[in-house]
Each structure stands twice: as C-alpha cells, then as structure tokens.
Amino acid sequence: MEAIPSDTQTMAAPDSGFNFLTPEAWKALLSHYSHVVLVANSEAVDFKRLRSELPETALYVFFNNVYKVLDEPFAGHAVLFARSGVMGANIVHRREAADVLRFFAGDDFLGVVNIRVSPEENFSEEGRFEGAETRHLDLTKMLVDLYPVGKIATSGFAVALWLAELQLPGKILLAGFSAKRSEKWKVFDVHDWTFEQIFLRLFARMGTISMMGGVDASPYAAIARRFPQVPPIEIAMTAAEVLSERLHNANSQIDRLMSVTKSIRAIEGFFRRFKPKTRKQRFLEKSKE
C-alpha cells in the first residue's frame, strides 16, 4: 500500500480514492454545531449526563470500535473517526467496518473520517467504508515536532489538538478521557498517556477545551484553595516530591515482581514462538521483500 504524503492543505484528485479537505472547509463543516464532544472508548463515559446536559445541536465524535461505549444505534449528530495502521484503517483491515457502522445511520451521521497520525500509517480508500461518506485527515505534520519521540499519539488526543487549532465557534468537550485501564478495556503502552493528560488539562485550564470528569475533578485544586497563601509553584514542587517518592517505592515492588516472575516469563516466551503470525505481521514481512 502506497503511503500518502502529509499535506492537509491540498485536495486529492477526484479519482484517487481519498477525500481531503482544507482547514477552511473543515471549519465550515463543523461550525454548525454548538458543541463538539469527543467520546473516548472508556467506561468513564456518562452518556446519560451528556445527553441531558447538552443541546441537540451537539456533534458527538466517536473513535474506531464504538461498541465499547454503545450498545444500540446512536440517535444524534455523530461522526466516526477511523484510525489508520500500516495496513490501512484498522476497522477495514480487521473487517470490522460493518459491525461499527451499524451504530450510525440517517442524515445526522456526518460520515467517517479516516485519520493517520504517524508516517507509517496508511489510509483506506473511500469505498472501503460500507458506503458511508468518507473524508481523510492527515495529522502527521501537526504532531511530528510535538509528541514524545518513540511514542504514537492516541486518536482522541490528535483530534482534540486539531479541533483546538481550527478555532471553532462551538465548545470542545472531552468525555471519558481518563487514560485509566479498566477491568474491561486496556490502555496501550505505545501512547504517552502522561504527556497527553498534562497537555489536555493545560488546555482545559486555559479554557480551550472542557473535560467532563477531568480537570474540574482534580483533588489538587482543593489543596490550592485550602492554602491560598502558598504560591502555586510550591504546591507543584511538594506534589512532585511526594509523587517521586511513591514512584520510587512502586518501582522497587515492580523490580521484585520481575524477579519473582522470571521463570514464568521465560516459559511464556518459549511458547510464544509457536504462535501463528497475525495478518499484520505477514503484511509487514511481505512489504520488506
């Protein structure tokens, strides 16, 4: 699959299979909504609260495998952001497009936005998304000098940053962006969750975005209110000191666990060699030939 150049300023040729919009066109498309709500695939999402507090003019942005947060077709303005991988959009090459898109229908569904955030990711053509209207968005240039080296941005973080830069008239709200692993869904180590949370919470404190259950729920805000005579830098340094000590203690326990489980990990590594290769692994090996 041929890599697509990182250039969100230009439009793809009509017969190329890719549909890019200029920033001005994106802004015009999204300016009709009073709120743009980014819904994380997290158990922390409170849909009942969202639908009761927000007007019908809100646009809900979903990501990839929406069955993690939806159990029935979504009624309301919605758009699906489908993340790409080396083999194209993940929901396409995993043959999940039909299962995901069944949650959306009607005129209120804005369609699919196939995004990529790193150079090794590749788009899927418009026709691969079960007939849904599809647009493409390349965010690699926006993140190349921003995101920590060796890590890949989450779709939610990349889209939140992109929306903030569009300077839409409506409000941007993040729902369920907790970066916490739950009993049901895991978080992936390829992302820098700490960096993203710091960035998004600073955005929230600046008023650029809002975080439901995020910055407003911080227990450290209560400390600042309790000690108004203490400069914020002193509170931050004290918090960093405590966190550093706790992290050191946690690392000591992790080292002990690594030692105790050494034999178990050796056995697991031995049997992993017999595990069949995934479609992605076979694709990568073939592309190197």
Rank of each mutant, 00 (worst) to 15 (best):
I152L: 12
S155G: 15
L173G: 03
A153D: 09
L137M: 10
L137N: 10
F109R: 10
E126W: 07
D107I: 07
K141A: 12
A153T: 10
R102S: 15
E121N: 04
D107R: 10
L143T: 03
A105E: 11
D138W: 03
S178M: 03
V112Q: 04
V100Q: 07
T140S: 15
D145Q: 14
A132H: 04
D107A: 11
Y147L: 02
E126T: 12
I152S: 15
E133P: 14
D145I: 09
S155E: 12
F104V: 01
L166K: 13
A97S: 11
Q167V: 09
I172R: 01
P119C: 14
L110Q: 01
A158R: 05
E96V: 00
S178D: 10
K180G: 06
A105K: 14
F104L: 02
A158C: 05
P119S: 15
P148I: 08
K171D: 01
F129L: 01
F109N: 04
I172S: 03
L166P: 11
D99K: 13
E165T: 10
R102H: 10
V100S: 02
A175K: 01
R116V: 02
I172G: 00
I115F: 05
E126D: 14
Q167P: 03
L110F: 06
A158W: 08
A175T: 05
L110Y: 02
F104N: 00
A158D: 03
R95E: 12
V159M: 10
A97L: 04
S118D: 13
N114M: 03
R128I: 03
A175M: 01
R116I: 04
I152T: 14
L161D: 10
A105Y: 09
H136N: 07
W162H: 13
D145E: 11
R116Q: 05
A105T: 15
V149Y: 11
K151W: 15
L174S: 06
D108R: 14
A153M: 09
V117K: 09
N114W: 05
Y147C: 02
V112P: 01
V112L: 01
D138P: 12
S124E: 03
P148E: 11
F177M: 04
V159I: 15
A98G: 13
F103Q: 07
N114K: 06
F103S: 09
K171W: 02
A179F: 15
D108V: 06
P148K: 13
A98F: 08
S118L: 05
L101Y: 08
A160D: 14
V149R: 12
Y147V: 02
S155Q: 11
R128F: 02
G170D: 07
E125Y: 08
G150N: 00
L163Q: 09
E120T: 13
K141D: 14
E120A: 13
A164M: 09
E125N: 06
G106N: 02
A164W: 10
A132V: 00
Y147P: 07
L168F: 00
N114G: 00
A160R: 08
A97N: 02
H93N: 13
G170P: 01
L143W: 07
I152C: 14
F129H: 07
S118Q: 13
G127F: 03
E126Q: 10
P169M: 08
V117L: 08
F129D: 00
L146Y: 07
Q167I: 06
K171R: 09
